[in-house]
Amino acid sequence: MIQNYLILSVILFCIGILGVVSRRNVLIVFMSIELMLNAANLAFIAFSRFHESMDGHVLALMVMAVAAAEAALALAVVILLHKHKGKLDTDVFSLLKG
């Protein structure tokens, strides 16, 4: 039983990574990260269920709080980026180029 939930969690997590590495749209990259956080939450809850302990729930709550904080900041950054360049393309921002 638990294996199914965990494998689903891994699949969702991998899809999140795929989104981060292959997409150039800032918003989609951001949402992919949210997806990864959710995948982690699923794993927490699953473990919690099968160990019959509620610590996983608490951790999931914390992850949500962090996700909320991240959302607030990331969206502010997205707005700034859009203001500066008028684009949502991550490849426009390549100041780290060696």
């Binding site: 990574i17 981060v20 590495v21 150039r24 991550t90 390549s94 180029k97 060696g98």
Partner: peptide, 18 residues
Amino acid sequence: GFKIFQVGYVRVYAVYMV
């Protein structure tokens, strides 16, 4: 030599990580 890896695109760094 190593400079070529520093492409400056965030997602490419993520690719290295992956």
